[in-house]
Nucleic acid binder design. Structure first.
Lengths: 348, 348
DNA sequence: CTGAAAGCGCTAACAT
DNA sequence: ATGTTAGCGCTTTCAG
């Protein structure tokens, strides 16, 4: 029969150090206003017993939990994992923990997660909402009554602050660049056209080709390599095949590139390629792939900073509506010229 | 002067529903043994007030926190983010939350994180230790007195269960494959030779070339593209240049590939290439890169499952030493034959 | 500089 | 089926 070893508590420490609980509490909270001798004695006991304060008790007393929640579609996605990394760093610098939950863009899971996070009394939430319009989610967040920051995708017509890349401008820049190269039939390929980011990029593309009086060639059916290959094949079989492809997301870019390779279509000689979102090997492949680059880590960092700003603001008004200044931070994107769009290989 | 809206508590619900606290407690814990009428009434009040149980209070009563900690070097690393994704899914299926902290392989941060996680009374820990030998970390984990599972890297000579890939066997398989192709001068390139995984792979390589009476050509200095290019250049300038390169980690593979491309060295005609760890574009580049693939998500999944196994085991003995069966799970790796090693392009 | 005591919100005997 | 009550471990007035 082994005695169940309980974790030592503050009062055990107090007893063993022959002081009151108040004193121990003072010691573990900075040791101010405590006699150096007592301080030392208490510290020794703490060490001996291996005492660790119980956060739950503190929280119960009304403290912040020093915990923030991050709700993203997937951790494995390079975009979101980079955001998470940056957010975690900021959380750490504020002495807080980051709880990551994945939603897979499923509104039901989203609500559920908000709920669980609220049971745990997270101090605030960073979320990439599956649906910018969802009233249900809006409601859940409002009930949560903690600061919320939207990441990568805003809540439309809401006062919830958002940190997003300027997808519209990025897509315009990309499309314009292809136009400047002289391409006349620029097809835009993507999947998940309902996501906020994608639709913004589509809008930028459409606007730009229309302004240039060029045809708007949109294919939103790319789900996997198979569909990309199919799309590429069929578009090249047309009487007026496209001379450039603008892909709106990472995976689509890769699928399209693979398909073009497999079909032995020279890039950019026959068809140019420009992708949205940079990735590690874009520079290593032949030809190197030109892309629109977004400041991924920045997005995560700024979102977390905004959240802690709200958290640290003098606590009048606890509700989302009150703390939110409704700011939407749009981060700039950059065009990285490599070879696939027809640009000469850059220096370096 | 806005009244500070406090979160409603269980007793407020009880008051408003004109029942005792026990009843409300029963309701939020499944609603068993409660009169249907009362149940309905209480539920309505809960709804109205927007009540959410305070997890902290439950924890204080001795419940599990339903929270597990994951300590990894980086979230942005594709390997670890995939592990995290899998672990998060398992946690969710056990109604638990995943707290992710990054250590950047810094032992100090590691200890700190364990400490914070223990304040928060996480139910268990999954950790990829920076140093398999560290006694300090071992001590901290022992004090933590919760189940621990090692991920990707074991604690040497410890009873802490570990889930790792069979790095040694993987490297042997890779090296042997190159040998079978007829290469005689196989150079092994990598960075971070002190990491457990890398050193295991080095051991596998060394063992295999030695068994084949081939020279052991090891370069552990690859930190970035620059150093890779330098390494490739200088080794090809030698009187007996290598005819194959075995890279031990993802980034090294990419650097080496880029360098080979830039220097216009035909792969595999002049030098073959085989990498450890698969990555998304390995199949898309020309030539496609052969790799050793490890079951990444599996590692994360099994580690989490092991942890929950320990958590759910009849709770006698709380300490690491007692719950651990000292099992070390080694997952098999696979050779993916693509073109860079000299294999003919596979079907499909 | 130090201690006693009152809860924070919840669960779990123990009553009724 | 439901209510009463005693803490869980900590912080925090309020007195010494």
């Amino acid at each position: 029969m082994v005695k169940k070893r309980q974790r030592p508590t503050l009062s055990e420490v107090a007893a063993k150090a022959r002081v009151g609980t108040t004193t121990v509490s003072r010691v573990i909270n900075g040791g101010h206003r405590v006699d150096p001798k007592t301080l030392a004695r208490v510290l020794r006991v703490i060490e001996t017993l291996g005492y660790t304060p119980n956060q739950a008790a503190r929280i119960l007393k009304g403290d912040r939990t020093r915990t923030i929640g991050l709700l993203i579609p997937s951790i494995a996605d390079p975009f979101f994992s980079s955001c998470a990394e940056a957010a975690q760093a900021i959380a750490r610098s504020h002495d807080s923990l980051l709880i990551v939950t994945t939603t897979h863009n499923d509104p039901k899971i989203e609500i559920e997660s908000v709920d669980v996070l609220m049971r745990h009394r997270s101090d605030g939430l960073i979320i990439a909402p599956a649906d910018s319009e969802s009233q249900t989610l809006r409601g859940a967040l409002h009930r949560a009554a903690v600061p919320v920051v939207a990441l990568d995708r805003p809540f439309s017509g809401s006062s919830i602050p958002a940190v997003v890349a300027d997808n519209y401008a990025g897509a315009k820049m990309a499309t314009q660049h292809l136009i400047d190269h002289g391409y006349k039939r620029i097809v835009c390929m993507t999947g998940e056209p309902n996501l906020y980011t994608i639709s913004e990029r589509m809008r930028g593309y459409r606007k730009t080709v229309e302004a240039a009086k060029l045809p708007c060639l949109l294919d939103t059916s790319i789900q996997d390599y198979k569909s990309a290959e199919h799309a590429v094949e069929s578009m090249l079989a047309q009487p007026h095949p496209p001379d450039a492809i603008f892909t709106l997301k990472n995976s689509t870019t890769i699928f399209a590139f693979e398909a073009l390779q497999k079909l032995n279509i020279p890039i950019p000689a026959s068809v140019a390629l420009l992708g949205y979102d940079d990735f590690e090997l874009a520079a290593a492949v032949r030809p190197s792939i030109s892309v629109i680059q977004q400041p991924i880590a920045e997005i995560g960092r700024i979102a977390a900073e905004l959240l802690f700003d709200a958290l640290l603001r003098p606590t009048r008004g606890e509700s989302v509506a009150e703390h939110a200044i409704g700011q939407q931070i749009q981060l700039e994107t950059h065009l990285i010229r490599r070879s696939s769009c027809g640009c000469p290989p850059s220096a370096s």
